[in-house]
């Protein structure tokens, strides 16, 4: 036993923001292992320049944003290749954003509608000034060459 035991101390400081009340800076970061699971073929498709949606085997409802089971009837869906041309259903240009995307502002988000497809697809519009985007405007899909396995591997340009 050592009645004079001392905790070894380090030279690390604490970033102090305020004294009353005491406010310290606390770093908080998490590395996730995010599985796309049943959505994986969509991301694999982007790497091959294919835009994959889902069609319900039971009721034929067709989804531009894929899902492995149908929201209308619960049936299993099959993968279908979407047309790579569509129209702007709605749009916005973001001048601010979440921290992860701040450095990319301004960027234009669009929802794309495709003929013969019941739902829409969220993407970015490139190659048009913000005031050139319009509802109904024809757009065409393009794919990044170095796939990042993210939904931004596809984007749209004026057709």
């Amino acid at each position: 036993m050592n009645k004079n035991a001392k905790l070894p101390e380090t030279e690390d400081g604490t970033a102090l923001f305020n004294l009353d009340p005491i406010i310290i800076k606390y770093h908080y970061e998490i590395e996730y292992l995010h599985s796309y699971a049943q959505d994986s073929p969509f991301f694999a498709g982007l790497a091959k320049g294919r835009l994959l949606g889902s069609r319900c085997g039971a009721c034929s409802y067709t989804y531009a944003t894929p899902r492995s089971h149908c929201m209308e009837c619960g049936g299993a869906t099959e993968w279908v290749e979407l047309p790579q041309r569509g129209r702007i259903h709605t749009f916005t240009t973001c001048h601010f954003g979440g921290e992860a995307f701040l450095k990319e502002t301004p960027f234009t988000l669009i929802l794309v509608e495709f003929d013969g497809v019941d739902t829409l697809f969220l993407s970015r519009l490139i190659g048009a000034e913000p005031d050139e985007a319009a509802i109904g405007m024809p757009v065409r899909a393009r794919f990044v060459r170095n796939s990042k396995f993210k939904p931004t591997d596809v984007y749209f340009v004026p057709a």
């Binding site: 709605t90 979440g98 990319e104 669009i110 969220l122 939904p151």
Partner: peptide
């Protein structure tokens, strides 16, 4: 999977 990585921002969604 599909929305946040494209530029996740609620004001953007409401704007659309």
């Amino acid at each position: 999977n599909f929305d946040f990585p494209v530029g996740g921002f609620y004001t953007g969604y409401y704007a659309m």
